[in-house]
Every structure is written in structure tokens, then in C-alpha cells.
Design a protein around this nucleic acid. Structure first.
Length: 898
DNA sequence: ATTGTCACG
DNA sequence: ACGTACGTGACAATG
């Protein structure tokens, strides 16, 4: 005989559970790419799903508070008044919880003027009224008021700590824990008070005494009636606070007869809306364990595989089969994945995987290709009319180039698309994106036993062909999905007109590399190495011991314990020993150790830089850096292995390293071209500040011009000090400067810095208005935007954490400026590259350093190149101020400085 | 793996 | 009262 399912009603207090989850789970760990916080949704959903799984209810409902205004606040305005203002990070998650419930087909109820507790109390009362139904009730809540609802047919599940441990409150449990039966719990709470509701109780009376009184006198009413019989201090306090107790009792009584317009039958569990549930899980970026747990409960047996069911009709092409296959697919858009390796401007191709939207896919093993195959592949790759989609195309591009294949017709790079949609991500791994946007497990689908991959994989032993084809298909499907997202984020033009075409240019620059004078670099290495040794020796002599000068920990012992120097600014683990602090200490103590230490730092750093560079010189005598297009959230490029964007320049000694970056054989010289004050010019353009625009249009010394305005003197009366102050101010502006930061920078008093800022903003009111406007708008829309429409999402602008909020505000000030500059030089690179090709010049672009481009100049092209580069860089955008470009030429990067 | 320090724009 | 400018990458020391 089949077991009859006992009817069980599960009631949840949505508000209190979500609120608990919000504080239990660190918000940093739970937010989406676009900055939506999800910790409360996550915690609530997790609790809900666990209870659904463990308790198997037949009926479910969730109750919410509508607002803080209820009949209780009407009656007692201080009710819950001590609670902090509900954080925006919390409120924004409530609609998501409601959507989650809707997709689970679980009804949620709200009644204006009443709390979630009252709704639950009403439902419990209804459910228990019908004794024949045998309905059992479970109440999941984070609010202790519900304890009064516990009976032998209704149990409260109360989260103990965090969101995982539930305490099962049966009548016996309540009696054991509080010393009173459940229906008397509110009487006890009335005496003891409830801090979270801002209901003060009787001072000095705890749960123990309260329970004793209630039991002795048989209920609170009798305790009150015979209050004068209670002796001692506690009795006195009780009589004194009788009013509070009576009020508490009135307020903590739950309303049990609301008109909800639903019956218990309406709460029966229904079919889940699987597709909208999945969609929401993706939107919230819930993957991994919770996702699985939800799907297990929501749609048992219909796990991700259903979603991952990508049917691939794949084949590993044998010799001479490539050309016919490529012919068959015509000009369909193809997902392309390259197997091989790449880096340092070169690479190797082992195989190519192609996938089409209709399921066809092929893998070409380069090792077994015939000459005809090679030609067919080469032609297809190079044909711009045969559209291809790749993930992170720059590496494959280099590998293909090393194979002698040119790649054209790349209509989408899914890494770049995902970056434009959410530029703050740490990585844009294909598997992550596939899961986030396609609801598919790349790794799972790779396994032919689990996925639904239907193809003859022939001698594909390691599944290399399979996984490559699956990735090719994933890239293709992703491009379709991301196209919408990019469109929504307004990034379509940026993607197709800037980022995508830039890929090839960057690949070319990496491939070309920059020539290095290794002998010179080795000479410098020996030179600085000797000084490192000598300076360390002197440092050891002064303190009479040999410590590791590179260890902040050992330095702190020497400086602060042994030499008893004043403590510097704190770091997480101790006191800072950075150069600024050491200089400060030297001013106070004049201890020679500090000078040797500082000098040691300086030269060891130079030596390290040199050694790092030497290690990366390739057999061709050149360094081939890797440029990254999806790292910096502002839109800038970054450079690694080695980083050629932070080669020393500020000191004469450091600049000697730049002497080692030289013109390669067969070329005449290096040329650098950089924008002057690009960020301030963008500031002038965006702020439309008349005076600032005028300062730039005058063509005279910008910092001096602005200083003259601020100090209200003639331009020729500006002293070097005045200029230095305003220069620091000008630079600081785009960083969201503070009086403190400015004072540190200039070594002046914060008060003076603050006065300087006031003067500055009075002079350049347009800048002040612009800056406040940027932050306001970003707070409203959730993102900032550059001249080209590049977005950066800054959810922390509404954070309750002051540090986080202010940090986000500074990012909001900086992102449009730094990002627009990045847009501009990228456009300049595209135009310059095109113009070089147009003009048939042999000169080539080697490096980009944010506002500077470095070129290798071919013989006889010096003047033509300079004119071309100036024109393209200055014309990259039409701003209200001119773009000034300064150019220099020489044998080395050092000489090419201007 | 994280922290401190320091190089660049 | 508190910590302080934006964006990166490399290296050594240390947990």
C-alpha cells in the first residue's frame, strides 16, 4: 500500500530570513558582474531549498512586511525604531526574492499595516482550525515572536547562527529553553523586553525570573494583578515598569484574523517554472553547489545536462577532407577554437575546431593535413567574407600567424564582448562565460558519456578534438547571447569599431617586439649590482648586524624595537617601511641607516627590473610583451611578461634602462609620440568649463595658466611654487582628490590644501559641477560612461560602508577621464595603423604606454611618420580643446624622449 | 595565496 | 572617529 503523504504547510517569514542572510553572508562574496548584491537572495533561497528538500511540504507560502509602518508603530512610535535604516543593498534584493518565488510557483503574501508574522499567525490559525485535515505546520522565521505559534501540530524552525543551522522549536523545546509553554512566550518576552524591536523590558529581570513569576502566578495577567506580592528589587522594578510590560504584551501579540484572500488549498505546491527559474539563477550568477541543490529540488532528474544538451554532429577530418567540408559550410558564421600554444609574440597550432550553429562541427589536426588541406584552411581563414567567432582571439591569431596563416573575418571575440558588458571581472574564462550566459557546463559537455555529443570521434584518444569543438560551439553560441548584452550596455560600436579591430594591431605589436641592447643592459646590471652590495654592506655596518633588508618584518624589528624610532603609519601586519615613511624617519632621527636602506631599495629595484627584462629577451634579440585588453576596468591596456608600461623614467639612473630599448637592425630610429595632459583635456571637454578650455586653447603652459587663474595673478607672475601646487591639484582632480591626499603630495598642511581646493573650485566652477554631476548620475544609473560609451558599474556608490562608498565615488570620478583617454588612444592606434598601411610606410608601432606610442622608424620615413602620427593622434577625437602631441626621435627609447 | 613595496601613466 | 587619490604588474618575503 502506498504511503499517504501527510499534508504539511510550510510558512516562511521572508523579510526576517532575508535580513538575517544579508548580515550573515559577506556582501563582497555575493554580487553579480553588474554589481547587483545577491547575498540575501542567496541565503534566503538556500534556506528555502534546504527546508523544501528536508521537510517535503505539500503547501508553501512566504510572508513579507510591506513597510516599517504598521499598526504597531501607530500605537508606539518607537517600535523597531532603533533599527538601522534598511540598507539599499538589502532592499534591492527583495524584488529578486519575489521573482525567485514566482519562478518556484510559491505564493507570497503582504498586507499593508501588518507584519509578516501576523500573516503567518493568521495562516497557522486557519490551518489548525480544521482538525480533521491533519495538516501539520512548519514556520521558518528569524523572528522570535512566532514562538507563540508553536503547538503540537505547528513547529517553528529558527535559524541559530548564519543560515545553515535550524533549531526545531516544539512545545517541549520551548518549555525547556524558556521555562514557559509556547503560548506564554510573549508574556515572558513582554517582561524581558525585545531589543531588536526596541521594546524595553523590566530592567534587571531576565528570562529565568520572568518564567518563574508566570508559572507561579499562572500567567502574566495574574502576575500583574498580584504584582505587589513580588518582593525585592525585581518586584519593585516590575511595578515601576508595568506600563512597558503591558504595552509590550499588546504589541507582541500576533494578529490571527487578517483577511488574506487565500485559503490553505491555494498554497498547495505547484509545478515550477523551470525556464524562468534557470534564467534567474543565471542572472544572479548562482552556480555550483546552490544551483545544483536548487535544481535537485525544483526539477529532480532534469539537471544541467538538459540545458547543456548541445548536439554536435562532429567529425575529425581526415587528409583531403578539409576543402570539401569548408566548401559545404559556405559563408555561415563559424565558431573557431585553436588548439596549440602562444605567447611572447608567437605560437604554434596543433589543430583547429570549427562549429556551426546547426550542430555541424569539425576538427582539423594540423599534423595529418595534406598540402591541399593547408591551402584550403589558409584560404578560409584569410577570407574576410567567411565570418568567424573566437574567444580571446589575440593568442590564436599569433599561433595562426606562426603557422603562416592569416586570420580575417573575425566578427566577434567573446572575451572582449564580456569585458565590455562587465569590465570589472577578474577573468573572462570561456567556461565561466558559458555557464553564466548559456547555462552550460563546458567541462561536463566535454565528456561524451555525459553530454549528448553525437559524433564519430575516430581516433580522438584524449578527447582533444571533442573539447575543441565544444569550445568552438560555445564561443559561437556565446557571441549570440552576448550580442544582446553588449547592445544593452551600449557597447556595440566600441566593440566593433574599436576593441575588435585593435586585436590585430596588438598582436602585430607583440609579434614585432622591441629590440634590446643586451650588452648595455648587462653593463647596467653589473653596475647596479655592485652598488647593491656596497650599500647593503654600509647598512649592516651602521646597525652592527646583517639582516635581510628586503624583509619589512626584520626592518621593523631594527627600526622600531632596536633603534626605537617613532612608529610610522600602520599596515595590516605592522608599521610601514615605505620610502615616504623612511624619509620621514630620517628627518626626525637623521640615522644614516635610513639613507643606506633607501639607496639600497632604489638600486636593488633597478637591478631587479634589469634582470627581469634580460630574462625575457627572445632569441631574436627583442622583447615581446603581451598586451591585455580585458584587465583594466577603465578600458586601459595592460602589459605583462614583461610589463613594458612601467619602465623607469622619473630618475636619471632609471632612465638609463631606457637606453637599452633600441632601434632594431634595418630601421633608422625609435620615435615616441605622446599626448600632453590628455586627462585634463578630457576634463575640459567633459566639464565644458570655460576657463579651463581657454587655458588649453591659449597653447601656453597649462599648469602655469591655471595657476594664474587660481591665484589671480598675471601668467608671468606665477612662481614655481604656485605652479607646482596647481599642477598637483590638476593631476589629483581626476583621482577624486582629497585635501589630505593633496597635502601629502605637496608636503603641506591639510588646511592649506583644503584652502587651495576651495580656491580652485571657485575659479573652475565648471569642473566642480561636472565632478559632482558625474557621481550623482553614476549613483542614479549604477555606472559611469566614457566619451565612447564605455561603461563601468559601481554598485558600491550606494553602500552603507563609508569607505567602500567613498572609494566608489573616487572611481566614478576617475573612470570617465581615464577611460576616455583609453578610448582616444585606442582610436589613434587604429587610425595610425590604417594610415601607415595606406601610405605604404614600413615603419611600425611597437608599444603603447597609456598616453604614448612608440614606433620603429624605417629609413627615410622620419618626417612622413611624424606627420602621420601627429595627424592621427591629434585627430582621434573632436574635443572642444585641441589635442597636443609631442614627438621625439632617437636611437633608443631614452633618446627618443623629448 | 597574500602582503608590502615600488615602477609607470 | 577614521583613513585618505585613480589605474596597472613584478618581485620578495611570509603565512
Amino acid at each position: 500500500m502506498p504511503e499517504t503523504t501527510r499534508p504539511r504547510l510550510l510558512l516562511l517569514d521572508g523579510h526576517s530570513l532575508a535580513y538575517r542572510a544579508f548580515f550573515a553572508l559577506p556582501v563582497e562574496n555575493f554580487s553579480t558582474a553588474t554589481g547587483q548584491n545577491t547575498n540575501a537572495v542567496y541565503g534566503f533561497t538556500s534556506m528555502l531549498v534546504n527546508v523544501l528538500r528536508d521537510e517535503q511540504p505539500t503547501h508553501v507560502a512566504v510572508a513579507f512586511d510591506v513597510s516599517r509602518q504598521t499598526f504597531r508603530t501607530e500605537e508606539y512610535s518607537e517600535y523597531k525604531a532603533k533599527r538601522n535604516k534598511t540598507p539599499g543593498e538589502f532592499s534591492s534584493q527583495l524584488p529578486l526574492i519575489e521573482r525567485m518565488l514566482t519562478s518556484f510557483s510559491i505564493p507570497f503574501l503582504k498586507v499593508p499595516g501588518y507584519e509578516a508574522d501576523d500573516i503567518i499567525a493568521t495562516l497557522v490559525t486557519q490551518a489548525l482550525a480544521d482538525e480533521t485535515s491533519g495538516l501539520e505546520v512548519l514556520i521558518l522565521t528569524g523572528d522570535r515572536d512566532s514562538i507563540q505559534l508553536v503547538t503540537d501540530r505547528s513547529t517553528v524552525l529558527y535559524p541559530m547562527r548564519g543560515v545553515s543551522d535550524l533549531s526545531r522549536m516544539t512545545p517541549a523545546f520551548v518549555e525547556e529553553k524558556y521555562g514557559v509553554p509556547p503560548h506564554r512566550y510573549p508574556e515572558l518576552a513582554a517582561i524581558v523586553g525585545e531589543q531588536s524591536d526596541n521594546l524595553p523590558g523590566v530592567p534587571g529581570v531576565g528570562a529565568g525570573f520572568a518564567a518563574k513569576w508566570i508559572n507561579t502566578y499562572d500567567g502574566l495577567d495574574n502576575v500583574i494583578a498580584q504584582a505587589d506580592k513580588i518582593t525585592g528589587k525585581k518586584g519593585e522594578a516590575f511595578r515601576e515598569h508595568l506600563g512597558d510590560v503591558i504595552r509590550n504584551r499588546r504589541l507582541n501579540a500576533l494578529v490571527r484574523d487578517l483577511d488574506l484572500g487565500v485559503t490553505i488549498d491555494d498554497l498547495a505546491l505547484k509545478e515550477w517554472d523551470r525556464s524562468s527559474a534557470l534564467e534567474l539563477l543565471d542572472e544572479l550568477e548562482f552556480r555550483g553547489e546552490l544551483r545544483t541543490r536548487i535544481l535537485d529540488v525544483v526539477a529532480p532528474g532534469e539537471d544541467v545536462q538538459v540545458e547543456a544538451g548541445v548536439e554536435l554532429d562532429g567529425t575529425t577530418l581526415t587528409a583531403d577532407a578539409v576543402a570539401p567540408w569548408l566548401d559545404k559550410i559556405g559563408d555561415a558564421t563559424v565558431g573557431l577554437a585553436v588548439r596549440g600554444a602562444w605567447g611572447s609574440g608567437t605560437g604554434r597550432v596543433d589543430g583547429l575546431a570549427l562549429a556551426l550553429a546547426d550542430g555541424r562541427a569539425a576538427y582539423v589536426d594540423v599534423a595529418t593535413m595534406s598540402a591541399a588541406d593547408d591551402a584550403a584552411v589558409a584560404a578560409w581563414l584569410a577570407d574576410p567574407t567567411r565570418p568567424k567567432v573566437l574567444h580571446d582571439a589575440k593568442g590564436p591569431l599569433l599561433a595562426l600567424a606562426a603557422q603562416g596563416w592569416r586570420l580575417a573575418g573575425v566578427v566577434e571575440d567573446t572575451a572582449l564582448a564580456a569585458y565590455l558588458v562587465a569590465p570589472d571581472q577578474r577573468s573572462y574564462d570561456l567556461a565561466d562565460l558559458t555557464l553564466r550566459y548559456l547555462h552550460r557546463e563546458l567541462s561536463q559537455a566535454q565528456d561524451p558519456d555525459q553530454g549528448e555529443l553525437l559524433f564519430d570521434d575516430g581516433d580522438d584518444q584524449g578527447g582533444i578534438a571533442t573539447s575543441a569543438m565544444v569550445q568552438a560551439r560555445a564561443a559561437l553560441d556565446l557571441s549570440a547571447e552576448l550580442a544582446d548584452e553588449v547592445e544593452k550596455a551600449g557597447g556595440h560600436r566600441l566593440l566593433t569599431a574599436v576593441e575588435l579591430p585593435l586585436v590585430g594591431i596588438l598582436a602585430g605589436m607583440e609579434q614585432t617586439g622591441i629590440a634590446i641592447d643586451v650588452d648595455h643592459l648587462e653593463g647596467l646590471q653589473a653596475h647596479f649590482g655592485e652598488e647593491v652590495r656596497a650599500e647593503a654592506q654600509k647598512a649592516y655596518e651602521v646597525i652592527g648586524q646583517e639582516i635581510n633588508l628586503g624583509s619589512p618584518k626584520q626592518l621593523q624589528v631594527v627600526l622600531f624595537d632596536e633603534l626605537n624610532m617613532p612608529k610610522t603609519k600602520r599596515t595590516k601586519t605592522g608599521y610601514t617601511t615605505d620610502a615616504d615613511a623612511l624619509q620621514g624617519l630620517f628627518k626626525q632621527t637623521e640615522h644614516p641607516f635610513l639613507l643606506h636602506l633607501l639607496r639600497h631599495r632604489e638600486v636593488i629595484r633597478l637591478r631587479q627590473t634589469i634582470e627581469g627584462l634580460l630574462k625575457t629577451v627572445q632569441p631574436d634579440g627583442r622583447i615581446h610583451t603581451t598586451f591585455h585588453q580585458t584587465i583594466a576596468a577603465t578600458g586601459r591596456l595592460s602589459s605583462t611578461e614583461p610589463n613594458l608600461q612601467n619602465i623607469p623614467v622619473r630618475t636619471e639612473e632609471g632612465r638609463r634602462i631606457r637606453e637599452s630599448f633600441v632601434v632594431g637592425s634595418g630601421y633608422a630610429s625609435l620615435m615616441t609620440a605622446d599626448y600632453s595632459q590628455i586627462e585634463m583635456r578630457i576634463m575640459a571637454h567633459l566639464s565644458e568649463d570655460e576657463l579651463l578650455i581657454e587655458a588649453f586653447r591659449s597653447g601656453r603652459d597649462f599648469h602655469a595658466e591655471t595657476a594664474a587663474r587660481v591665484f589671480d595673478v598675471a601668467p608671468d607672475a606665477v612662481t614655481p611654487e604656485m605652479r607646482a601646487k596647481i599642477k598637483a591639484m590638476n593631476y589629483g582632480l581626476a583621482y577624486g582628490l582629497s585635501a589630505f591626499g593633496l597635502s601629502q603630495q605637496l608636503g603641506i598642511e591639510p588646511g592649506e590644501a583644503s584652502g587651495l581646493m576651495t580656491e580652485y573650485f571657485e575659479t573652475f566652477g565648471g569642473i566642480r559641477d561636472y565632478l559632482t554631476g558625474v557621481v550623482d548620475e553614476a549613483r542614479r544609473t549604477g555606472f559611469t560612461e566614457t566619451i565612447m560609451g564605455r561603461r563601468r558599474y559601481l554598485p558600491d556608490l550606494t553602500s552603507d560602508n563609508r569607505m567602500r562608498r567613498e572609494a566608489a565615488e573616487r572611481m566614478a570620478l576617475n573612470a570617465p577621464i581615464q577611460g576616455s583617454a583609453a578610448d582616444l588612444i585606442k582610436v589613434a592606434m587604429l587610425h595610425t595603423d590604417a594610415a601607415l598601411k595606406d601610405a605604404g610606410l614600413a615603419s611600425r608601432m611597437l608599444l603603447q604606454v597609456h598616453d604614448e606610442l612608440v614606433f620603429e622608424v624605417a629609413d627615410g620615413e622620419q618626417d612622413a611618420l611624424e606627420a602621420l602620427v601627429r595627424e592621427q593622434m591629434a585627430g582621434a577625437a573632436d574635443l572642444t580643446v585641441p589635442l597636443d602631441v609631442s614627438v621625439g626621435t632617437g636611437r633608443s627609447w631614452h633618446e627618443a624622449a623629448h
